[in-house]
């Protein structure tokens, strides 16, 4: 018996004593993962519109994406993912109902009106890659955000592909202001507390003095975006491809940094 054959035999032998779960976990623990937050103030279709477009665009780059959406107002991203009205409007009829579906080999989607309703997916991605981005898109609520954000961070652990992973901290936060709530709240102070390392992008009217409290980058969401809110398709175009590249550069450099830390 050659050494190679011996090794193969040993692997097969070891396999008998490893549960499927253990094997899955050992494979999954190498996934590079990031959490992205999209928070939208006021009742606005921008939450579902931006989240659906961005998640499709990232998934098309051979990266697994889990879109986790929460918010009271319509539309939810199911509208843009061309769900039947009976399906995407189900949470409007029954507030405790979830929308949960794998949309492709590399994109899965879950929606609930409130974060406490979220539950894990039963199945993993059909296509196993080494990268995974969780996008949590939600409404910015007035008043104290602490409990709400804690809940969203806790949920991120449900969707992590890494075995035994605890909750993630956002690497990127996108804030879209469609109301006036950003002018009188400690949002940016809270961000510094929750995600001090996050890269922050702001779109819409955000006072410079507020945005200046952290290194927020302005996002010109009207440039290169075909804003057809009523069209039942995930939006696409130069804005999404350009911003996805920027986003992946930021996240990619984080992943490289973490890999170096592990090697050390």
């Amino acid at each position: 018996m050659s050494p190679g054959e011996s090794s193969t035999g040993l692997k097969q032998f070891a396999r008998l004593f490893l549960s499927v779960e253990d094997e899955k976990n050992s494979r999954e623990c190498v996934v590079s993962e990031s959490l992205v937050w999209i928070m939208v103030t006021g009742n606005s279709p921008m939450r579902a519109f931006l989240a659906s477009g961005l998640s499709v665009c990232i998934a098309s780059k051979n990266i697994n994406v889990t879109l986790v959406e929460s918010g009271r107002g319509l539309p939810n991203a199911g509208y843009y993912f061309t769900f039947e009205p009976e399906e995407y409007l189900l949470p409007a009829l029954d507030k405790k109902k979830l929308l949960k579906r794998s949309l492709s080999d590399s994109l899965r989607f879950i929606y609930a009106r409130t974060p406490s309703l979220f539950e894990p997916f039963e199945e993993n991605f059909a296509r196993n890659t080494e990268t995974h981005i969780i996008i949590e898109a939600f409404d910015f609520l007035q008043g104290d955000q602490t409990d709400y954000w804690e809940e969203l961070l806790r949920i991120s652990a449900f969707y992590s592909l890494n075995y035994g992973n605890e909750r993630l901290v956002p690497d990127v936060i996108i804030i879209i202001n469609s109301g006036d709530q950003l002018q009188n709240v400690g949002l940016f102070d809270s961000i510094v507390e929750f995600a001090p390392e996050a890269t922050v992008f702001t779109g819409g009217e955000v006072l410079d003095e507020l945005a200046g409290r952290i290194d927020a980058k302005k996002l010109n969401i009207l440039a290169g975006m075909d804003i057809s809110f009523g069209r039942r398709l995930p939006p696409s175009g130069p804005f999404f491809s350009g911003f996805t590249n920027t986003l992946l550069q930021k996240i990619g450099s984080r992943w490289k940094g973490k890999q170096k830390d592990v090697v050390r």
Partner: peptide, 21 residues
């Protein structure tokens, strides 16, 4: 019934989103 509710809400939402666009 629920069927009418879904149809009415879906068309109302489409009208609203089209108006915004």
């Amino acid at each position: 019934d629920r069927g009418g509710f879904v149809r009415g809400l879906d068309l109302s939402l489409k009208h609203y989103l089209d108006s915004l666009s």
